[in-house]
C-alpha cells in the first residue's frame, strides 16, 4: 500500500501507530493456513494451487523431489516472495501477505535455511545474541546491555547445541555440521511459535541426526515445527504427519506409511529413489 493511501484511509490507523504484534490467535484451529497459493517465475509455475494447514503444536514433514516448490513455499511464508494469488494466514488473525520479513519473524516464525546461514564474522556467542528474542528496533538495539539472565539463556542453548567450547570463536571457522547446529540454536533463541526447518541434517553424522530428531520432536507440542527434508530415514524417525509436494502442489498427505504406499507418490518420488 502506498504511503498516500495509508494516510487517506481513515478507518485504519497508521502502521506505525498500530500496536506491536498482537499474540497469535490459534483458538480456531490451525497455526498456519495456506489457501490456493500460486507463484510463477517467468511463466514457470513454482507453486500451483497449494493448500496447506499446520495445526498448533504439530510436527510436519514436507518431502518432494527437487523443484517441487519446498523452498519457494518457505519463502512465501516468511515474506521473502509474494505469491501471485492466494492467501496465507498465521493463526486466524495475521494475514502474512501484508507483512514483511522482520514483522513475520517478530510475530514468531523462525526459519532455518537450506544452506546453513550464520554470521561468519561474528562469534558463536554473538550469533546467538543477535537471534535472541528482544526489542529489535534501532535505538533499543544500540543501547542494549547484556543482562545476566540473557547470558544464562545463551549458555543454555550453547549447551544444547554442543558448541559451548567454541562460544568465542568466529562462526566462519565452524564445520558444516556445526553451522547447522548453530543455526538451530539461533532458531531456539528466537523462541518462535512456528519453526520452518529446511534440510536440517544435511552434513550431519548419524549421532547428530539422532540428536536433531530428538530435539525437533521435543519441541513439537510447545511449538509447531515444519521440516523439509530429503533424508527419508530421518523423516521416518520423526514424522507423524507427512505432506508430499509435487510440481508446486500437494500430491499426498498422511502418515509416513500412508504416504509411502500411495501409488502416485511412489510413481513421482519414492519410485525414483528405489
Amino acid at each position: 500500500m502506498s504511503m498516500l493511501e495509508q494516510l487517506t484511509n481513515r478507518d485504519q490507523v497508521f502502521d506505525f501507530l498500530a500496536p506491536v504484534a498482537s499474540p497469535v490467535d490459534v483458538r480456531h484451529g490451525p497455526i498456519l493456513y495456506l489457501e490456493d497459493v500460486n507463484v510463477s517465475f517467468d511463466g514457470f509455475k513454482a507453486i500451483n494451487n497449494l493448500n496447506l494447514t499446520i495445526d498448533d503444536g504439530e510436527l510436519r514433514c514436507i518431502i518432494g523431489p527437487n523443484g517441487a516448490g519446498k523452498t519457494t513455499m518457505m519463502d512465501i511464508i516468511t515474506g521473502k516472495t509474494r505469491p501471485d494469488t492466494g492467501s496465507v494466514w498465521f493463526g486466524s488473525r495475521h494475514n502474512l501477505l501484508t507483512m514483511n520479513e522482520p514483522d513475520i519473524a517478530t510475530l514468531g516464525i523462525g526459519r532455518k535455511f537450506q544452506k546453513p546461514t550464520v554470521f561468519e564474522a561474528l562469534t558463536v556467542f554473538e550469533n546467538l545474541e543477535l537471534a535472541m528474542a528482544a526489542d529489535k528496533r534501532i535505538l533499543p538495539t544500540l543501547t542494549a546491555i547484556m543482562k545476566p539472565e540473557n547470558r544464562d539463556q545463551i549458555d543454555e542453548v550453547l549447551e544444547m547445541i554442543g558448541l559451548k567450547d567454541l562460544r568465542d570463536k568466529l562462526a566462519g571457522i565452524l564445520s558444516h555440521g556445526q553451522k547447522q547446529w548453530l543455526e538451530i540454536g539461533m532458531l531456539l533463541m528466537q523462541k518462535p511459535r512456528l519453526l520452518l526447518v529446511d534440510e536440517p541434517v544435511a552434513g550431519m553424522t548419524e549421532q547428530e541426526m539422532e540428536r536433531t530428531a530428538e530435539l525437533l520432536t521435543s519441541l513439537a507440542g510447545k511449538q509447531s515445527v515444519v521440516v523439509v527434508e530429503h533424508d527419508m530415514g530421518f523423516v521416518r524417525s520423526i514424522a507423524r504427519q507427512v505432506t508430499v509436494l509435487h510440481q508446486g502442489g500437494v500430491l499426498a498427505e498422511g502418515t509416513m506409511d500412508q504416504v509411502s504406499n500411495d501409488p502416485e507418490v511412489i510413481k513421482v518420488y519414492l519410485g525414483e529413489e528405489a
Binding site: 550464520v118 561468519e120 543477535l130 529489535k136 544500540l142
Partner: peptide, 25 residues
C-alpha cells in the same frame, strides 16, 4: 561495539538472514 554494530555486520554478510531474525535491515 554495540549490539547494533553486530547487527550491521550481520546485515553486511547475510542480509536476508538478519531480516528473518526480526531486524529491519
Amino acid at each position: 561495539t554495540s549490539k547494533l554494530g553486530r547487527v550491521s555486520i550481520a546485515c553486511r554478510d547475510a542480509e536476508a538472514r538478519t531480516r528473518f531474525l526480526g531486524y529491519r535491515v
